[in-house]
């Protein structure tokens, strides 16, 4: 089997972990593939840089906000100096760039398997209602507002507490109208309009990770129920589940939009009803769980992209436990020194 060098970003396995390390592990788990991992980091302290048993070489990347030219030059450099056959971008901020320029990146001989820009825009929270209706899932009562008056009206209509969210980023829980106004101002100042006011639905938090092949078919999906979350709201312990309402919505999401690439639907289940809270257009940080129960989603994606055979078994065991733990690596200052002065290690 020829070697495939895969670039993986989001190797910031910290208290708010990026998905990269899990994706890298999953790829390496597929023993029929001959994969080498390149870490694409944005900061010299991303732990992945120092995990040499997973990541063969790491490069500091220019921020996507710096535009296409610098970014593409860096990819060309990595391709020329180490080799790079495929990239799995795992951060929200990178996706628009990969989505828009996927053809140009592929022309460099670097494959990607990402949603189109149009698909990417579906994740905006002010479009959640539209998506939810199409894929047959409920959403919490939601109002899109752009003024204080509308905000107060929405809060009265929905009833406290409410979630106050930006269209793309930030979400706060407000217990009073005053708090809602404060969060509204805060989000508007940073991210602009519109603001989404949402009913707080209590219940069990459950998510589904999946990969669409871009032609309406699923390359696998797995449901998880969060058992324990950290103070940052990140999953620490979970259990695999099969909630048919949630999985049907995920299938329908892939099918309706011909979704290409990884995604996560964040849901809440309440009295048998499942509500869609958020769509993430990439692998979630816990996606290694899928590989761990025999459903290797990153590998399926890579195989699909390279035209390699994909396991037809899309089934997984429910009741498997997902446990995170912390771990330490002791190393010299040298890798840090190299990454800080040369931008690679």
């Amino acid at each position: 089997m020829r070697e495939i060098i895969v670039g993986v970003s989001g190797i910031n396995a910290v208290d708010n972990p990026g998905p990269g390390i899990g994706v890298a592990r999953a790829l390496l788990d597929d023993k029929d593939l001959n994969v080498k991992i390149v870490g694409l980091a944005y900061d010299g302290m991303e732990p992945g840089i120092y995990l040499d048993w997973l990541i063969d070489r790491s490069y500091i990347m220019p921020y996507p906000s710096g535009g296409y030219d610098a970014f593409i030059k860096r990819l060309e450099y990595i391709k020329a100096s180490f080799g790079l056959d495929f990239i799995i971008p795992n951060l929200d901020s990178e996706l628009p760039l990969y989505a828009k320029y996927s053809e140009k990146i592929e022309k460099l001989g670097i494959g990607v398997f990402v949603p189109t820009l149009k698909q990417f825009h579906l994740r905006a929270k002010n479009r959640l209602a539209e998506v939810a209706e199409k894929i047959g899932i409920k959403i919490p009562q939601t109002e899109v507002v752009t003024s204080h008056d509308e905000l107060v009206e929405a809060v009265e209509k929905i009833g406290l507490p409410v979630m106050v969210k930006g269209a793309l980023y930030k979400a706060y829980r407000a217990h009073t109208t005053q708090q809602a106004i404060e969060y509204y101002n805060k989000i508007v100042a940073e991210w602009g309009y519109p603001i989404v006011v949402q009913q707080v639905v209590s219940g069990e938090e459950m998510n589904v990770v999946g990969v669409g092949d871009g032609e309406g078919n699923s390359l696998g999906m797995l449901g998880i129920r969060k058992l324990w979350i950290t103070s940052l709201g990140k999953i620490w312990t979970g259990v695999s589940i099969r909630n048919q309402k949630m999985l049907n919505a995920a299938s329908s999401f892939i099918h309706t939009y011909n979704w290409k690439g990884a995604f996560e639907l964040e849901c809440i289940s309440n009295n048998g009803d499942v509500y869609l809270i958020e769509i993430n257009p990439r692998f979630p940080a816990w996606s290694y769980f899928a590989a761990g129960v025999g459903l290797n989603l990153p590998s399926n994606m890579l195989r699909k992209a390279f035209g390699l055979p994909i396991s037809q078994n899309m089934d997984y065991k429910v009741g498997k436990l997902y446990v995170r733990y912390t771990y330490e690596v002791i190393t010299d200052l040298q890798p840090f020194q190299e990454i800080m002065t040369k931008g690679e290690w």
């Binding site: 900061d43 010299g44 921020y63 990454i339 931008g343």
Partner: peptide
């Protein structure tokens, strides 16, 4: 931390 981007 957070500013260790050599590309900057």
């Amino acid at each position: 931390t957070g500013l260790m981007n050599k590309f900057g």
